[in-house]
Amino acid sequence: MSAAAMLGATPAALAQSAKAWPSQPIKLVVGFPAGTSPDLMARTLAEPLSQLLGQPVVVDNRPGAGGNIGAAQVARATDGHTVGLMVNGNLTIAKILNPATPYDPITDLAPVSLIAVAPLVLVAPNSAPAGGPAFWSAAKASGDRWNYGSPGIGTVAHLGMELIKVKAGISPLHVPYGGNPAVITGMLGEQVNMALLPPGLAMAQVQSGKLRAIGVTSAGRSAVVPGVPSLSETGLPGVELEIWNAVAAPRQMPQAHVARLAAALAEIVRRPAVRAQIAAQGWQVVGTAPQGLANRIAQDTATMTDVIQRNGIQAK
């Protein structure tokens, strides 16, 4: 059903359109390699989604450009059965950070559902001062002799650290790596002084005694990383930042189909077994309607655009 036809359609007609969809296998595009966090999330959702919708759900990995290659494929899709599992940057500041990005998150993609969120954990080598006040004092005194690592320019970890620099009045240099595993390697070798990492990666290192957790970027303590203080508790208020996974569709997908997919995803992530799987991956389940994701996109786009413009950050 076209967008024009939908405007004049009755509720019964829209319901029938949604019921008839999907009529073929669904392709769930992931813009990251197999084994990464977005890939694991997609594979957690694929089987129960297939059972609920009555069609196979095939995970299609299209890695590159921080997930933007996969997002661009979704934006271009015209088969009505291609959607994507995406991260913050793909749905917010992709075009702002790099005008050459081959899609626009706002005009080319339709929000479906915010699946899960997690704070980031600020970590440092074990040689770093213990306790928040001592850590921030050392960071200020070190100036640009300290650095911080990130999995790449324009990632949430990069922009989050730039926000922390402003809030804390510190000036470590940015060292972009090719991914979080390389950041961790650099930190274990004490070539990196601090970094924001996803909870699953951070706490594996902290609990094994290899790295020190300084604080978490949630408003208060997070159930995802119990026992780690918020950054506010360490003496750094005003830093609230989350990473998230969401499902988006091509903008031209009929609203009835988007609504049916969102409802199916919301039902799936509330199942105890699926919630447990997602929690084990270091995430807190959300499962919103399309408008809920749209609201989050608008909020995060405004926050991150401010950081990008204030610091003159550009994709390279």
Rank of each mutant, 00 (worst) to 15 (best):
A72Q: 14
V117P: 08
P111E: 14
R271E: 07
T305D: 13
V59R: 04
V156L: 15
Q24H: 13
R43P: 11
N147P: 09
G54K: 05
S17H: 10
A204V: 02
Y148D: 11
A15W: 05
N193W: 07
K140W: 11
N193C: 02
L211N: 02
L159R: 09
A141K: 11
V228C: 03
V121K: 01
G186T: 00
Q55C: 11
K167E: 15
A266C: 08
L114W: 10
L45A: 12
L236K: 02
L241C: 07
A15K: 10
D306Y: 10
T36S: 15
A302T: 08
A15F: 09
R271I: 03
V30F: 04
G292Q: 07
G160D: 13
T303D: 15
G186P: 03
N245H: 15
S150A: 15
A71W: 01
P63W: 05
G189H: 13
Q51G: 10
V183I: 14
R76Q: 15
H158C: 08
A4T: 11
V59G: 03
V121T: 01
I153V: 14
S2E: 06
V307A: 01
A262V: 09
R76V: 02
L196P: 10
L236P: 06
A138I: 06
G227Y: 15
V224A: 01
E47F: 07
D79R: 00
V156D: 12
V239T: 09
I153S: 05
G152N: 04
G287P: 05
V285K: 09
I313M: 04
G131N: 05
A289P: 11
P151A: 14
V175G: 01
I115K: 13
A94L: 01
I268C: 11
V59N: 07
A4S: 13
V121W: 05
I26C: 14
A15Q: 12
Q284D: 13
V216T: 04
V239M: 09
T301K: 15
D108S: 00
P272C: 05
A266G: 15
N147Q: 05
A138R: 14
V123E: 07
T305Q: 14
A15I: 01
I26H: 12
M161Q: 11
A219H: 07
P272A: 04
L265F: 08
D300N: 10
E233A: 01
D60P: 00
M6K: 03
Q277T: 04
S222M: 04
V269D: 11
R212G: 09
G235C: 02
G66N: 13
A18W: 02
A4Q: 11
T36E: 13
T44C: 13
H257W: 07
T92G: 05
N245P: 12
V123I: 04
